[in-house]
Design a protein around this nucleic acid. Structure first.
Lengths: 303, 303
DNA sequence: AGCTCGCCCCAAGTGGTGCTTATGCTGAAG
DNA sequence: CTTCAGCATAAGCACCACTTGGGGCGAGCT
């Protein structure tokens, strides 16, 4: 088995024509070069160098080896450079999966910051619901999954919680739920309202998990909400409320970039937090591009 | 510094998708593979493999490394094969230098035998006088020099003898000198004659070294020869003798393939041996193709 | 659901290997 | 002839890689 290190030494010897010069060039002592060349000749099974008085000459086998060494060492350094580029964030791809309509402001700013900080990297974006996105993460179809959870409700969704304990969970943003009522509603001009004050209203719910969470919170407030509509499309929720068809509780973030027409927001009591987190596999968290993207998501969440 | 051995392991892991399977394929234990991969990841500076439950997946850096590994390992095995071909005499070049007109039968048979035994090898032939051929050997312009010496005369040519003591000297053939006289000569019908009987004759001498040797031998026999002509072209010597211009002492080998016209050979007394030897450098004697050619020359000499 | 098997990680011991320093020898130049 | 530069060798030493033994964990089977 010929080793690349030996080829490097052989090439230095061939170029300098001397063991000592090669040793100086390689930053080691002369006997080291001597031994390496002996080892190489042994593994080659034939002499490679002939000592003719002062100068070193290569045998035909030695010339053949030097000829191949160029390509081999070039390939090796090319591989090292490509790896270094990926490790040094001058290259690399990250596949990000976000929950639908949860990425209106967070993801775009993170993507923009990532591109600015590390122009060589490429981040692709896909949308999937948390159960599905976790599946994709575990299945190797993405490196980062953006999801959310309601830490306030212990035991509300134990499966989902325990499903993450072997993942790297990076908090991105704590979002509070705000109430949305039609502007002709009796509470439209109030600053805040308790959940119980909306007990009799028809509700517009979000995605399945949000809907379950809403039911849990309302039951804690002493009533079971009457849910007329459920959609994971936040603009649709806003539209339905604006049309006076009911009330809703939706994340502040969903209202950050739109101004609801025909509806008013009110503070809800008790305050309900929704925690948006970025998830990845423990091994992937060590990958430079993935770690950088997690940082950018966290930074976007701090704004 | 990425090592080729690591790439081999990485490729095995990537192909089999398992450390254990790779270890079986590589003929080592599983922890060895584990450690090699860890070392490779450390020298790469970034994770290469992600352990997702049961299956192994490569990171982007890992994929890049595997992609390069193909070419690097292919180049390495190509280099090994070429060296093995040279070592195994399926390839290789030898440059042979012979003294002029000393290679009429010896060298052709050796070349033919070499080609038959090792078809992949290529032997080139050049002609040079021994002082010059040794110079070529030391200067790297040939691998084997065919030369001759007169071992009978100690001190006759001390420079030439001592010039070979750091070379590999392979005896090829012991050739005796025979006398050549015109057919009308008074000794033409004799079986043998002493040098002293030719003391008064005009002599035709050979190359400079042969001429010096002739003078030495004749002086031992009690006379100084009168040398009218000197040429290193044996057919010319034969022609001159045949024309009755003098007598000559030339190697039996020079008469092996020709029948002299107008001249007769006689045994000379005392018997003078000329030793034909093949010379090479100590290091070169280890080169398979050179060693094989030396063997073929020795074998040709035994015939 | 429990069990068992296979796979991976971890730790410790050990053998080998490559490096260094020190020394001797040889060839070339002054 | 002397001196210097370069290569080979030997001894000592540190390091590295492989092996064995043990543990945790996920997957598939009963």
């Amino acid at each position: 088995m010929i080793e690349a290190r030996h080829l490097r030494v052989l090439r230095a010897v061939a170029r300098t024509g001397s063991f000592s010069a090669a040793a100086r060039e390689l930053g080691c002592t002369q006997p080291a070069v001597s031994q390496q060349m002996k080892a190489l000749e042994q593994s080659a099974g034939t002499p490679l160098i002939i000592r003719a008085g002062r100068e070193m000459r290569l045998t035909e086998a030695g010339q053949a080896l030097v000829r191949h060494a160029a390509g081999i060492l070039a390939g090796l350094t090319a591989a090292e450079e490509e790896v270094a580029a990926i490790a040094g964030l001058r290259a690399g791809r990250v596949r990000l999966v976000s929950f639908p309509s949860g990425s209106s402001t967070l993801v775009p700013t993170a993507l923009a910051a990532m591109r600015a900080a590390h122009p060589g990297t490429a981040v692709s974006l896909d949308e999937a619901e948390p159960p599905r996105s976790i599946e994709m993460l575990r299945g190797g179809d993405c490196e980062i999954a953006l999801a959310f959870r309601y830490p306030e409700v212990p035991g509300a969704d134990p499966a989902a919680e325990s499903e993450w304990d072997d993942l790297v969970v990076r908090p991105v943003l704590s979002d509070r739920l705000v109430g949305l009522v039609p502007e002709e509603h009796r509470l439209a001009d109030e600053e805040r309202a308790g959940f119980a004050e909306l007990a009799k209203e028809p509700w517009i719910a979000g995605c399945p998990r949000c809907r379950r969470h809403l039911v849990t919170v309302c039951e804690r407030a002493g009533f079971t909400p009457r849910i007329d509509f459920a959609t994971d499309d936040y603009p649709a929720v806003i539209g339905l409320v604006g049309a006076g068809l009911g009330v809703a509780a939706l994340p502040e973030l969903a209202l950050a970039s739109v101004r609801p027409k025909g509806a008013r927001t009110i503070q809800l009591e008790p305050v309900v937090q929704r925690e948006i987190v970025a998830l990845t596999l423990p091994d992937l968290a060590q990958v430079p591009a993935v770690a950088a993207m997690l940082d950018q998501l966290a930074a976007a969440g701090r704004r």
